[in-house]
């Protein structure tokens, strides 16, 4: 029982950490693009990024399952070329989790960048610094609260996802059974003790993360958080 408990938690935090890390690499160039470029399809892109905020997780889970299925071109290609089936696997829920938490990484970064006075960026250019150097040495250091917020929110949100992970992952112990799904399972089996343990851990972790965010941002306006 205890062994299962820790494995479940391990999968949960592994999923959240990897999601956050992957999204950090995707999110930085993406948020830069959205903060500073203007192109005709921009509202479409921004809407797509924000979809996970409004779409029911079951809808996303459905579409992702369809995409993973070998009867669809994407799943078919993965199966034939890489011999990989994503449904009900850890890699499968990882990809789904990345898509699902996309706005939680991108929006704080994008807003943080947009809140910086434009002249700081221009001043760096006048000093001969390239856009890359400017991004890493001038822009990023000045949006530290936004970066921390983005990391913490993405992590916390990944821990909390239930419906979509259940659909795409299928609640396989040791593979795709994360804490939020395990609680549901244990309640169904009337193991309220076990459910309680999971719930407390998740509550505590989420709470600590939020307190952390608000402490870091105490010097800044917390309403600018997202």
């Amino acid at each position: 029982m205890d062994h299962e408990f820790f494995i479940t938690l391990w999968i949960t935090f592994k999923l959240a950490s990897l999601t956050t890390l992957i999204l950090l690499f995707i999110g930085m160039p993406f948020s830069y693009l959205l903060a500073y470029s203007d192109f005709r399809l921009k509202p479409v892109v921004e809407a797509l990024v924000s979809m996970p905020l409004v779409l029911p997780p079951s809808v996303m889970g459905y579409y992702i399952l369809v995409a993973y299925s070998p009867r669809y071109w994407f799943g078919d290609m993965l199966d034939r070329i890489f011999n990989v089936r994503l449904a009900f696997s850890f890699e499968g829920i990882l990809i789904a989790s990345v898509i699902f938490s996309l706005p939680f990484m991108i929006q704080p970064l994008q807003n943080g960048l947009r809140a910086l006075p434009n002249q700081i960026r221009e001043a760096s250019y006048t000093l001969g610094k390239s856009r890359t150097v400017t991004f890493f040495h001038v822009l990023l250091p000045n949006i530290r609260p936004s970066i921390i917020t983005a990391l913490a929110l993405t992590f916390a949100h990944s821990i909390g996802e239930f419906g979509m992970i259940l659909m795409v992952g299928g609640n396989m112990p040791g593979e795709t059974r994360v804490a939020s799904v395990a609680i549901y399972d244990e309640i169904q089996s009337l193991n309220l003790d076990a459910a309680n343990k999971y719930a407390m851990v998740l509550f505590a972790v989420s709470f600590i993360i939020l307190v952390f965010i608000y402490s870091i941002n105490r010097k800044h306006d917390t309403w600018k958080m997202i």
Binding site: E122, A123, T126
Partner: peptide
């Protein structure tokens, strides 16, 4: 801008 070798002083200073 980066290749024009200019020094620009902004009205709002724009210090980092």
């Amino acid at each position: 801008v980066q290749h024009r070798n200019i020094g620009f002083m902004f009205q709002e200073y724009a210090l980092f």
